[in-house]
Every structure is written in C-alpha cells, then in structure tokens.
Design a protein around this nucleic acid. Structure first.
Lengths: 202, 202
DNA sequence: CGCCGAAAATGCAGTCACTGCAAAATTGCA
DNA sequence: TGCAATTTTGCAGTGACTGCATTTTCGGCG
C-alpha cells in the first residue's frame, strides 16, 4: 500500500466512483425538477440523465424525494462535528444558530449549487413533507452531537433534544414565513428568531 | 344555495354518512396497522374492512398514511378556535401548552380511541415522516388562529409562526425523548420543556 | 498480466399506491 | 315521483419501489 495520499478521503476508485454517481443522480434530479417540476419527473429519467440504470437509482436513494433532497451522511457528520466542538463563549443555541444558518447560506465553494438547491427545494411545495421528514435525520445527528458536547448520556436528559428541535423549528418557521411573503430578509429573521428564543417566548 | 343549517354539521344524511365512512376507514386502518404493521397493510384491505370500494378510499384520504393518521379538518378548526380565544391571563405559549397537551392526553369522550391512536402511531417508526408532515397542517392552522388573536395581518410578523412552530417542536421533542427511553413522564416533560422555553434557551 | 473473490450494476418480474375517466347507484329536493 | 347533483364504483393505466438472479467491474495477488 504505497498509495494513501492520492485523494482527500476515499483512496479507492470504487468509493470515489460511488460518490460521483450519487452526486450525478442528485444533480440530474435537481435539473429535471427545475425544468418540469417534481411530479413530472420519473426516477427512470433521473437515472438516465445520470448515466445509470433505473434499478441502480434505488441502490443510491430510497425514494425519488431523497434523490432530490440529496442530504448525505457526510454532511450530517460534518454538522454534528461542528456542533460537538465547544467554541469559546458560545452557548449551544448560539452554535446551532451559526451552523443552521450556515446550512442555508451559500458558502464559499458550493456557492451556486447551494443557492440552486435552496431555490429548487423551497420552490416545490409538494416536497415540504419530505423536507421536514429529512429534518428528523438532522435533528437526531445534532442531538447526539450536543449530548456528547454536554457530556451527558444519550437520551438521559431532555435538554439536548429540546434545544436542537427548537432551533430547527425556528429556522423552518423563518423559511415558511419567507415563502408566505412575510416581511424581512431570511438571515435577519433567523437572527431575530434566535434572539427571541434566547430571551424566552411568551 | 340558500343553505343555513346544512353547512353546519350532522344535518344532512349525506354529510353524516360521509363522516361515518371517513371514521370507518380510519378505524379500519388503525385496526389493521395494529395487527400487522403499516407496511403489511394495503389500501384495498382498509377499504374492504370499512365496507367501501378500493377506489372510494382515495375519495376520503390522499394516501395510506393520511388514513392511518386521520386528522380531520374539523379537529384542526377546533384547535385553532381554542387558540384564537383569548383566555384571561394566559400568554400564547401557555395556551399552546394547554391545547397541544390536550391533543395528546386521552380526553373525556374519546378516551380509549385517543390512547389507541397514540400508541399505534408512535409505535410505527415508518410513520414518523408522515407524522411530522402532518404537523405542517397543524402549524398552519394554529398560526392563522394566533395571528387573529394577536390582531396582526396573516404573515405580517414572524412572531405567531415562530411561537407555534417552537411549541410543536417542543412537544415533538418530548415524544421523541420518550420513545428513546428517556427519563420522566411525558406530561411532566412537556411542562418542563415549556417552562424552559418561557425562561429562554441557551 | 491474468485470475479470483467481492462489490456494484443491471435486467426482470412483480406488488401496490395512486389517478383519470365514465358508468352506475344514491341522495336531496321540487 | 322524477330530476339533478353528488357519491360510489369499476377499469385501465402510470410509476415508485422491491427481491432475485445475472452480469459486469474493481481491487488485490501471485
């Protein structure tokens, strides 16, 4: 084994190709949904555009919705790791604000992809149930991370799960507010929402 | 149509029968899911047990999940009305605590049915996405009601939606905590959760 | 390089959720 | 009782999703 440093993480060509296929399927799904809308796209078409067979599609994603949403386990782990890290002078809620806002904001590298994703996903009301369903995965990952950060046993106290759930709900509420033509810019509203939560709701 | 009494409830035989059918389908779905589990039940079986054709099933519910969950528009309206009512010395969050806890607690009349529902729905992890999807409906109904209570234009301020979303998230977190074998009784945890939210999270 | 075991891709057949459409049954009302 | 509206139902079709057997591809090893 003289080859280790070739790639970032996945040395094997096999792993890299799987990642590429997964990404290709996700991008194909986004393309097609953008063109025709979620309902008018079939999994066969997504597979075809990604260059794989119809059957292979379901080796990568358990449903059409999942392919469009495309959240990977790696992303979840990354966010969890970010939350687990105890930043100086930052409360759990503040960390969550930073991390969740970062999930929405088009970031350095994937700038245009993130913005595209956000636009397409939020523009499809029929995807809303699947999106909140996907939030369960995020919530579980972040809850585990926060429990580790707080040094409590998994499921021992309500605190970690409550904080994460409320934070995610706050972001969701802001997005919903936005979609209903609500006032204010998204980032600003998220800041306000977290401020209110920190101050205590009535 | 000069209907005045008809649009109420339980007036026309037609309306009453529709309600019975809806209820029969919901109960049949609960029965079968309890017996065999959600995945092993078909919509045809539900329809058969309820005494209607397979096609008619989809005149009442848009999906198998919806039939099992069975939340009716009337229930939503009732909860919304309860929230809209301004109770002396009760903040919006306190009203939400009372109403949402009431949704879970086996109440006077439907005592055993409510408990059954809760047991079956929460015992089926595969229904979790559908359940949180259903929460969107509840959130929208309650948000509208709270906006009316506060006297603001729909969607004008973030406050109403944020409060409702956070309250629902709190209850969900407690349920999730419960299912993961967390400590404490559900009612008590919900009380604690709302207390924390009122005091401000960190 | 060529072979082998493992993993992944594919093809095929089947089940079932869900839909549109048109005919048939049922109900409310004059 | 008869008419019009509403509801039920049957039928045929689409497409998501699954299990299984087969084939292809990949990675390692002599």
């Amino acid at each position: 084994m003289s080859t280790d440093l070739l790639n970032d993480e996945s040395c094997g060509l096999r792993e890299r190709k799987k990642r590429e296929t997964r990404r290709a399927l996700n991008l194909a799904a986004l393309d097609l949904v953008e063109e025709r809308g979620f309902a008018a796209v079939t999994t066969e078409e997504i597979a075809a555009r990604a260059g794989v067979s119809a059957r292979t599609f379901f080796n990568y994603f358990p449903s059409k919705e999942a392919a469009v949403i495309g959240t990977t386990a790696e992303e979840l782990e990354a966010y969890a790791a970010a939350l687990e890290e105890d930043v100086e002078g930052e409360s759990p809620l503040e960390s969550l604000r930073r991390i969740l806002a970062g999930m929405l904001a088009p970031a350095s590298i994937d700038r245009e992809l993130r913005a595209r994703r956000r636009r397409i996903l939020l523009g499809e009301p029929s995807l809303a149930p699947a999106l909140v369903g996907n939030n369960i995965r995020i919530e579980n990952a972040l809850t585990g991370a926060l429990e580790r950060r707080l040094g409590v046993e998994p499921g021992a106290s309500l605190e970690a799960r409550l904080t994460v759930a409320v934070a995610i709900a706050a972001v969701r509420a802001c997005i919903e507010h936005q979609q209903n033509g609500g006032s204010g810019r998204l980032e600003r509203n998220i800041d306000q929402a977290f401020d209110r939560i920190a101050a205590g709701l009535r």
